[in-house]
Amino acid sequence: MAAPTSTRDRALDAAHAAILELGTERTTMVEVARRSGVGRTTLYRHWPDITALFADLLTRELTAAVTRVGPGLADPTLLRDADEIAEQLCGIADQIRTDPLLDAMRRHEAGLLAEYLLRRLGASQHALVAMLTGVLAHSPDPRLAGRDPGTVATMLYLAVQGAVLSAPLADPPLDPVTWRAELHRLIRGYLIP
């Protein structure tokens, strides 16, 4: 028997479906309430507005992508060398680059994405940087020694984020296979200068 879905998850699932079907402009709190069966008052207890709900949804989806592709990244004590780290980061980047929700937000909700690209790091970004910091701090790879894991993790995150969000601008000339190979080269080159 499946675990019951929380009110919050039902609302986020409904918002996800609405964005893919209607776009962000037509996805409102009223639409999310209708699709999820959650009252508007309850929605407003969780999120002050639709932008906050979108941000929470994006955090959930990014975290899920990391868990699907690199579940081991959540455990920094697993032994990883620079090549394994680069491979897992490329897998996560590929998963996020092709995510339909991110594509819809990239096309229709540039203002929300700009907030997290140009002004501040959000909860999911901080979590990913912290996760990378832990992985780098515990890596037995001697080629990674002598560098501050937090600094390296932050720069890696910013580089990968930029590559993911800008991927549509590079196609062409970079097809998806070439994009991933070049991203791998970029990450590995930064990890092992």
Rank of each mutant, 00 (worst) to 15 (best):
A82S: 13
A2L: 11
P76E: 10
T41W: 09
I85W: 12
W179I: 00
T151M: 04
P172Y: 08
G189E: 03
R106P: 09
T151C: 04
A2N: 07
G162Y: 10
L78K: 12
T51A: 14
T77F: 12
I50S: 07
V32C: 03
A65P: 02
R106V: 03
V38R: 05
T41E: 14
R10T: 00
L89V: 15
S124F: 09
W179M: 06
T133G: 10
R68F: 03
M131P: 04
P4H: 07
Y44W: 12
E21C: 01
L102D: 06
L136G: 02
I192V: 15
D99H: 04
L53P: 06
R107E: 08
D56N: 09
H126E: 13
G39S: 15
G162H: 11
L57N: 05
D171V: 14
L43K: 02
G189A: 04
S36I: 01
A170K: 00
A127R: 13
L58P: 00
A137H: 06
R97W: 04
R40E: 15
S36M: 09
T28A: 12
P48E: 07
R68D: 15
D94N: 09
G91L: 04
H16P: 01
V30S: 15
A17Y: 01
L165M: 06
T42P: 08
L158Y: 02
R8M: 06
A170E: 00
A167C: 01
A86R: 03
R80T: 11
M155K: 02
P142W: 09
V129G: 12
A104R: 15
L183E: 04
L144P: 05
M155L: 14
L191P: 04
A104Y: 06
A65D: 09
G23A: 00
T154C: 08
E109S: 12
R60I: 01
L58W: 02
R180T: 15
A163G: 05
Y44G: 05
V69K: 10
L12G: 09
E115C: 06
L118Q: 08
R180H: 06
R97G: 00
E109Q: 12
A33K: 09
L121C: 03
D49K: 03
R143H: 07
A74N: 09
V30F: 14
V135M: 07
P48L: 01
T59G: 01
R35N: 02
L101R: 06
L89W: 12
M29E: 11
Q88S: 08
A82V: 01
R68H: 10
E61Y: 00
G122M: 11
G189C: 03
V164R: 08
P176I: 05
D148W: 11
